[in-house]
Simulated assay, not measured.
Amino acid sequence: MNTTHTRPLRRRLGLAAAGSLVLVAMTAGPAAAHAEVTASDPRALAENVTLSFTSEAESDTAGISELRVVLPTGITPDAVTLKDAPKEWKLTPTPDGYAVGGTALATGTDAEYSITVRQLPDAKSLAFKTLETYGDGKVSRWIEVPTGGEKVDNPAPVLDLKAAASGAKPIAPSASPTPSTVPSAPPSAAAAAAPPASAASAEKDTGGRTGAVVGVAAAVVLLAVGIVWWLRRNRGRGQA
Protein backbone atom coordinates (compact mmCIF):
# COMPACT_ATOMS: atom_id res chain seq x y z
CA MET A 1 0.00 0.00 0.00
CA ASN A 2 1.14 3.50 -0.78
CA THR A 3 2.03 5.14 2.54
CA THR A 4 1.70 8.57 0.93
CA HIS A 5 -2.09 8.11 0.65
CA THR A 6 -2.44 6.22 3.96
CA ARG A 7 -1.23 9.06 6.22
CA PRO A 8 -3.78 11.66 5.02
CA LEU A 9 -6.52 9.03 5.30
CA ARG A 10 -5.57 8.23 8.91
CA ARG A 11 -5.46 11.94 9.71
CA ARG A 12 -8.97 12.48 8.33
CA LEU A 13 -10.32 9.49 10.23
CA GLY A 14 -8.76 10.78 13.46
CA LEU A 15 -10.29 14.23 13.00
CA ALA A 16 -13.69 12.70 12.28
CA ALA A 17 -13.53 10.58 15.44
CA ALA A 18 -12.53 13.59 17.55
CA GLY A 19 -15.37 15.61 16.08
CA SER A 20 -17.84 12.85 16.90
CA LEU A 21 -16.69 12.78 20.53
CA VAL A 22 -17.09 16.55 20.85
CA LEU A 23 -20.59 16.36 19.37
CA VAL A 24 -21.62 13.61 21.78
CA ALA A 25 -20.26 15.57 24.73
CA MET A 26 -22.16 18.70 23.68
CA THR A 27 -25.50 16.93 23.21
CA ALA A 28 -25.26 14.67 26.27
CA GLY A 29 -25.71 17.52 28.79
CA PRO A 30 -25.24 17.15 32.54
CA ALA A 31 -25.68 13.67 33.92
CA ALA A 32 -27.81 14.86 36.85
CA ALA A 33 -28.99 18.02 38.57
CA HIS A 34 -26.77 19.39 41.33
CA ALA A 35 -29.80 20.16 43.50
CA GLU A 36 -32.61 17.64 43.77
CA VAL A 37 -35.92 17.12 45.57
CA THR A 38 -38.03 14.03 46.29
CA ALA A 39 -41.37 13.62 48.07
CA SER A 40 -42.90 11.03 50.38
CA ASP A 41 -46.19 11.40 48.48
CA PRO A 42 -45.69 13.11 45.10
CA ARG A 43 -49.37 13.71 44.34
CA ALA A 44 -51.22 16.95 43.80
CA LEU A 45 -53.16 18.04 46.92
CA ALA A 46 -51.38 15.47 49.09
CA GLU A 47 -51.23 16.55 52.75
CA ASN A 48 -48.40 16.54 55.29
CA VAL A 49 -45.84 15.63 52.65
CA THR A 50 -42.13 15.29 53.44
CA LEU A 51 -39.90 16.90 50.85
CA SER A 52 -36.24 15.86 50.93
CA PHE A 53 -33.59 18.07 49.34
CA THR A 54 -30.00 17.33 48.37
CA SER A 55 -27.54 20.01 47.24
CA GLU A 56 -24.24 18.75 45.90
CA ALA A 57 -21.14 20.45 47.29
CA GLU A 58 -19.04 21.96 44.52
CA SER A 59 -16.46 24.09 46.29
CA ASP A 60 -12.99 22.73 47.04
CA THR A 61 -12.29 25.42 49.64
CA ALA A 62 -15.47 25.86 51.71
CA GLY A 63 -18.57 24.04 52.86
CA ILE A 64 -22.23 24.91 52.34
CA SER A 65 -23.57 27.19 55.09
CA GLU A 66 -27.04 28.13 53.84
CA LEU A 67 -29.68 27.17 51.30
CA ARG A 68 -32.30 29.73 50.35
CA VAL A 69 -35.36 28.38 48.55
CA VAL A 70 -38.09 30.21 46.65
CA LEU A 71 -41.33 28.28 47.13
CA PRO A 72 -43.52 27.57 44.09
CA THR A 73 -46.97 29.08 43.75
CA GLY A 74 -49.41 27.32 46.05
CA ILE A 75 -47.04 26.80 48.99
CA THR A 76 -46.69 29.62 51.49
CA PRO A 77 -43.83 30.02 53.99
CA ASP A 78 -46.15 29.42 56.97
CA ALA A 79 -47.11 26.00 55.52
CA VAL A 80 -43.53 24.70 55.85
CA THR A 81 -41.80 23.23 58.90
CA LEU A 82 -38.30 21.79 59.23
CA LYS A 83 -38.20 18.03 59.74
CA ASP A 84 -34.53 17.11 59.50
CA ALA A 85 -31.32 19.04 58.81
CA PRO A 86 -27.60 19.08 59.62
CA LYS A 87 -26.74 19.70 63.25
CA GLU A 88 -27.47 23.25 64.46
CA TRP A 89 -29.12 24.21 61.18
CA LYS A 90 -32.40 26.12 61.48
CA LEU A 91 -35.18 27.15 59.13
CA THR A 92 -36.11 30.81 58.80
CA PRO A 93 -39.14 31.85 56.73
CA THR A 94 -38.59 34.55 54.11
CA PRO A 95 -41.16 36.61 52.17
CA ASP A 96 -40.98 34.21 49.18
CA GLY A 97 -39.89 30.97 50.81
CA TYR A 98 -37.36 30.05 53.47
CA ALA A 99 -33.69 29.80 54.31
CA VAL A 100 -32.15 26.83 56.09
CA GLY A 101 -28.60 26.92 57.36
CA GLY A 102 -26.16 27.29 60.20
CA THR A 103 -22.56 26.28 60.77
CA ALA A 104 -20.85 25.59 57.44
CA LEU A 105 -20.57 21.90 56.57
CA ALA A 106 -17.23 20.24 56.00
CA THR A 107 -15.77 20.96 52.59
CA GLY A 108 -17.07 18.49 50.03
CA THR A 109 -20.10 17.47 52.14
CA ASP A 110 -23.47 17.56 50.37
CA ALA A 111 -26.25 19.45 52.14
CA GLU A 112 -29.26 17.24 52.89
CA TYR A 113 -32.41 18.28 54.75
CA SER A 114 -36.16 17.69 54.72
CA ILE A 115 -39.27 19.75 55.36
CA THR A 116 -42.93 18.98 55.92
CA VAL A 117 -45.46 20.78 53.73
CA ARG A 118 -49.05 21.09 54.91
CA GLN A 119 -50.41 20.41 51.41
CA LEU A 120 -49.02 20.31 47.90
CA PRO A 121 -50.79 22.50 45.34
CA ASP A 122 -52.85 21.19 42.45
CA ALA A 123 -50.11 21.26 39.83
CA LYS A 124 -48.20 18.96 37.50
CA SER A 125 -44.75 19.96 38.71
CA LEU A 126 -43.14 22.20 41.31
CA ALA A 127 -39.86 24.08 40.96
CA PHE A 128 -37.87 25.04 44.06
CA LYS A 129 -35.34 27.66 42.97
CA THR A 130 -32.34 27.35 45.28
CA LEU A 131 -29.36 29.53 46.18
CA GLU A 132 -26.44 27.73 47.80
CA THR A 133 -24.18 29.88 49.96
CA TYR A 134 -20.75 28.65 51.04
CA GLY A 135 -18.73 29.60 54.08
CA ASP A 136 -16.45 31.80 51.97
CA GLY A 137 -19.39 33.77 50.56
CA LYS A 138 -19.58 32.03 47.18
CA VAL A 139 -23.14 31.55 45.90
CA SER A 140 -24.32 28.89 43.43
CA ARG A 141 -27.68 29.63 41.81
CA TRP A 142 -29.83 26.65 40.85
CA ILE A 143 -32.76 28.69 39.57
CA GLU A 144 -33.32 27.78 35.93
CA VAL A 145 -36.52 25.90 35.08
CA PRO A 146 -36.25 23.82 31.88
CA THR A 147 -39.18 23.99 29.47
CA GLY A 148 -39.98 21.81 26.51
CA GLY A 149 -37.34 19.26 27.42
CA GLU A 150 -34.48 21.71 26.85
CA LYS A 151 -31.25 21.49 28.81
CA VAL A 152 -30.21 24.27 31.18
CA ASP A 153 -26.90 24.91 32.90
CA ASN A 154 -28.21 25.58 36.41
CA PRO A 155 -31.47 23.63 36.80
CA ALA A 156 -33.67 24.24 39.82
CA PRO A 157 -34.89 21.19 41.76
CA VAL A 158 -38.16 20.13 40.12
CA LEU A 159 -40.72 17.74 41.61
CA ASP A 160 -43.11 16.03 39.17
CA LEU A 161 -46.53 15.37 40.67
CA LYS A 162 -49.07 12.67 39.95
CA ALA A 163 -52.78 13.39 39.69
CA ALA A 164 -54.60 14.13 42.93
CA ALA A 165 -56.28 11.27 44.77
CA SER A 166 -60.01 10.87 44.29
CA GLY A 167 -61.90 13.29 46.52
CA ALA A 168 -58.83 15.33 47.44
CA LYS A 169 -59.60 18.99 47.99
CA PRO A 170 -57.55 22.05 48.92
CA ILE A 171 -57.56 22.58 52.67
CA ALA A 172 -58.52 25.95 54.09
CA PRO A 173 -55.60 28.34 54.49
CA SER A 174 -54.28 28.81 57.99
CA ALA A 175 -54.80 31.94 60.01
CA SER A 176 -52.55 34.89 59.40
CA PRO A 177 -49.00 33.92 60.37
CA THR A 178 -47.62 35.44 63.53
CA PRO A 179 -44.65 37.82 63.29
CA SER A 180 -42.48 35.26 65.10
CA THR A 181 -42.90 32.65 62.36
CA VAL A 182 -43.07 34.66 59.16
CA PRO A 183 -41.18 37.94 58.83
CA SER A 184 -42.89 40.83 57.17
CA ALA A 185 -42.09 41.58 53.54
CA PRO A 186 -39.13 43.89 52.95
CA PRO A 187 -40.01 47.56 52.42
CA SER A 188 -40.74 48.68 48.90
CA ALA A 189 -38.20 50.65 46.93
CA ALA A 190 -40.12 53.88 47.61
CA ALA A 191 -40.31 53.18 51.33
CA ALA A 192 -36.65 52.21 51.43
CA ALA A 193 -35.70 55.41 49.68
CA ALA A 194 -37.75 57.56 52.07
CA PRO A 195 -36.11 58.50 55.39
CA PRO A 196 -37.55 57.03 58.60
CA ALA A 197 -40.31 59.00 60.32
CA SER A 198 -38.03 60.07 63.15
CA ALA A 199 -35.37 61.21 60.69
CA ALA A 200 -37.97 63.07 58.62
CA SER A 201 -39.32 64.79 61.74
CA ALA A 202 -35.82 65.74 62.83
CA GLU A 203 -35.09 67.06 59.34
CA LYS A 204 -38.34 69.07 59.39
CA ASP A 205 -37.56 70.52 62.82
CA THR A 206 -34.04 71.35 61.70
CA GLY A 207 -35.38 73.05 58.60
CA GLY A 208 -37.84 75.05 60.70
CA ARG A 209 -35.13 76.16 63.10
CA THR A 210 -32.88 77.08 60.18
CA GLY A 211 -35.63 79.18 58.63
CA ALA A 212 -36.24 80.98 61.91
CA VAL A 213 -32.54 81.73 62.35
CA VAL A 214 -32.33 83.10 58.81
CA GLY A 215 -35.38 85.28 59.44
CA VAL A 216 -33.97 86.71 62.66
CA ALA A 217 -30.63 87.39 60.97
CA ALA A 218 -32.38 89.21 58.14
CA ALA A 219 -34.35 91.33 60.63
CA VAL A 220 -31.15 92.23 62.49
CA VAL A 221 -29.47 93.27 59.23
CA LEU A 222 -32.45 95.42 58.25
CA LEU A 223 -32.52 97.01 61.70
CA ALA A 224 -28.80 97.78 61.50
CA VAL A 225 -29.23 99.35 58.07
CA GLY A 226 -32.09 101.43 59.39
CA ILE A 227 -30.08 102.66 62.35
CA VAL A 228 -27.14 103.63 60.14
CA TRP A 229 -29.45 105.48 57.76
CA TRP A 230 -31.13 107.31 60.66
CA LEU A 231 -27.79 108.35 62.18
CA ARG A 232 -26.47 109.63 58.88
CA ARG A 233 -29.68 111.58 58.27
CA ASN A 234 -29.57 113.24 61.69
CA ARG A 235 -25.84 114.02 61.26
CA GLY A 236 -26.59 115.70 57.92
CA ARG A 237 -29.29 117.85 59.46
CA GLY A 238 -26.96 118.93 62.28
CA GLN A 239 -24.30 120.07 59.85
CA ALA A 240 -26.85 122.04 57.82
Results as ranks from 00 to 15, higher is better:
230 W>D: 13
114 S>R: 08
54 T>F: 03
59 S>C: 00
210 T>M: 13
124 K>P: 00
152 V>A: 07
197 A>S: 14
186 P>Q: 14
111 A>N: 06
126 L>Q: 08
114 S>L: 10
7 R>Q: 12
206 T>W: 09
186 P>K: 14
8 P>W: 08
214 V>D: 06
68 R>I: 13
150 E>M: 06
82 L>W: 01
145 V>A: 00
118 R>Y: 04
44 A>S: 06
158 V>P: 07
53 F>M: 00
108 G>C: 05
54 T>W: 03
101 G>L: 00
198 S>N: 12
68 R>L: 13
67 L>W: 02
94 T>Y: 03
216 V>L: 15
101 G>W: 00
47 E>D: 13
149 G>W: 05
86 P>D: 07
16 A>S: 10
121 P>I: 05
69 V>C: 03
214 V>H: 04
217 A>E: 09
169 K>S: 10
122 D>V: 02
199 A>N: 09
230 W>E: 13
207 G>W: 09
28 A>P: 00
225 V>Q: 11
233 R>G: 04
121 P>Y: 06
93 P>S: 07
14 G>C: 09
198 S>R: 12
175 A>Y: 10
180 S>Q: 15
52 S>F: 02
82 L>I: 04
108 G>S: 05
137 G>W: 02
191 A>S: 14
49 V>W: 01
49 V>R: 00
43 R>W: 01
86 P>C: 08
163 A>Y: 07
24 V>W: 05
172 A>V: 10
40 S>D: 03
202 A>N: 12
101 G>N: 00
141 R>I: 01
83 K>L: 09
204 K>G: 07
8 P>F: 09
5 H>A: 14
30 P>D: 08
102 G>V: 00
215 G>C: 11
47 E>G: 09
6 T>I: 14
110 D>I: 02
116 T>M: 07
13 L>E: 14
135 G>V: 02
74 G>L: 03
197 A>N: 11
173 P>G: 06
80 V>L: 01
222 L>Q: 08
154 N>E: 13
19 G>V: 12
169 K>I: 06
36 E>A: 08
219 A>R: 08
133 T>V: 09
116 T>R: 08
89 W>C: 04
124 K>A: 05
133 T>Y: 03
80 V>A: 01
184 S>R: 15
90 K>T: 15
22 V>Y: 05
221 V>P: 06
20 S>Y: 03
23 L>G: 10
84 D>F: 09
6 T>P: 03
196 P>Q: 09
54 T>R: 09
164 A>T: 01
234 N>S: 14
214 V>Y: 06
166 S>K: 15
193 A>K: 12
96 D>R: 08
196 P>V: 07
223 L>K: 04
16 A>D: 06
162 K>P: 00
125 S>C: 04
166 S>I: 14
177 P>I: 02
148 G>M: 12
133 T>D: 03
226 G>F: 11
13 L>R: 14
31 A>S: 06
214 V>C: 04
239 Q>Y: 09
168 A>L: 08
215 G>L: 13
55 S>W: 04
87 K>N: 14
231 L>G: 07
2 N>R: 15
187 P>T: 11
